[in-house]
Design a protein around this nucleic acid. Structure first.
Length: 326
DNA sequence: CGACTCATCCGCCATC
DNA sequence: CAGATGGCGGATGAGT
């Protein structure tokens, strides 16, 4: 996909794939951005909403969605968006995966947001490559797809034929980035302005720049504590301290944490530290020992052990394969 | 690599 | 009664 100096006014074909019981909010983001005409009122994109599977498509709350196109429409798309998926534990249907692989093989750019990243990972397209995922789901994705280099830190990443983004807000950033890529910055700004959204953010901005004040309810207090832990990942964090911060007994903290994150607190912390180390290994040439410190590991030995345990690769090998500094 | 130490964490169960 | 809570203890696993 080349964007030459000559402006191309042909609408770019975008297919947005929707699955049954998938979150609607992330799906609405590309429909909004890619469905908005440019400043002159001309459509920038040809938008196809595609049913990712047979049968009735519903949203949470029981709203029924009718997608006008089937999977064969992916063959004509320049951009295929996978905005969401219902359940990380469930493998997406094979016909959809095959259609996405075929579209990618024909040169389409594949875009995933948040849970849609689980669909992208299931296609195998990002094996051995980087995929950005919402920090909350990143450990699960990495555990399910060891060949994928999961990034739980960035907002989104543009790797050319694959664009991956974290949560809902990052989906908006990634969509505007795509508008800029296929058209120009002016058009992206015009669409952003019409949607009354903030100016575009770079994909490398960390996902957690600020943390909301805590609310009541055990799951809200837990996500506050998770955000706190990510902000203080370089410090040694005891589970007792985190439980206290969540205003729960140690036993309840352990129980709720496993319910929500699908793993124990130390294991989750370990994943987050490995993610931070991955980012530092990619983007800096610092010695492993320094990176271990900056990612919150007690020592280089500790980093090496955890890194290999989680990703099956040593930090050095990882840097050789993905590092920016050649 | 193995031995030692210590935090973790999950099943069990009484209690709220 | 149903569901959430939290203390206990032993298996596990990480750090030294």
């Amino acid at each position: 996909m080349s964007v030459g100096s000559q402006v191309n006014r042909e609408p770019v074909t975008v297919a947005v794939v929707y699955f049954d019981r998938a979150p609607m909010f992330e799906t609405a983001v590309p429909l909004n951005v890619f469905g908005t005409p440019d400043a002159t009122g001309m459509p920038v994109f040809d938008l196809f909403v595609v049913a990712g599977e047979q049968g009735t498509l519903t949203t949470s709350g029981g709203l029924v969605v009718e997608a006008p196109f089937g999977l064969d429409a992916l063959a004509d798309a320049s951009i295929v968006v996978l905005p969401s998926w219902r359940d990380p534990a469930e493998r997406p249907p094979e016909p959809a995966l095959a259609a996405i692989r075929a579209a990618h093989a024909h040169g389409a750019t594949i875009v995933s947001f948040c849970l849609g990243g689980f669909v992208l990972a299931a296609t195998g397209i990002v094996d051995g490559r980087r995929a950005v995922m919402h920090w909350f789901h990143a450990p699960t994705l990495a555990a399910m797809y060891p060949k994928v280099s999961v990034d739980g830190d960035a907002l989104f990443a543009d790797d050319g034929d694959v664009v991956t983004a974290g949560g809902t807000g990052a989906a908006l950033d990634a969509c505007l980035h795509l508008v800029e890529r296929v058209r120009d910055r002016h058009t992206a700004t015009a669409i952003a302005r019409r949607m009354l959204t903030a100016p575009r953010r770079a994909g490398t901005r960390p996902q957690l720049l600020y943390t909301a004040p805590s609310s009541t309810g055990s799951s809200a207090r837990l996500s506050d504590v998770m955000a706190f832990a990510m902000d203080h990942i370089t410090e040694p964090l005891g589970i007792d301290e985190l439980a206290q911060r969540a205003r729960m007994s140690r036993r309840s903290f352990d129980r709720h944490f496993r319910d929500i994150a699908g793993m124990s607190a130390t294991r989750w912390l370990s994943w987050q530290r490995v993610f931070r180390a991955q980012q530092l290994l990619r983007d800096s040439g610092e010695p492993i020992e320094d990176i271990a410190h900056r990612a919150g590991f007690a020592s280089g030995l500790s980093l090496r052990r955890q890194f290999h345990r989680h990703l099956g690769v040593s930090p050095q090998d990882y840097r050789l394969r993905y590092g920016r500094t050649a």
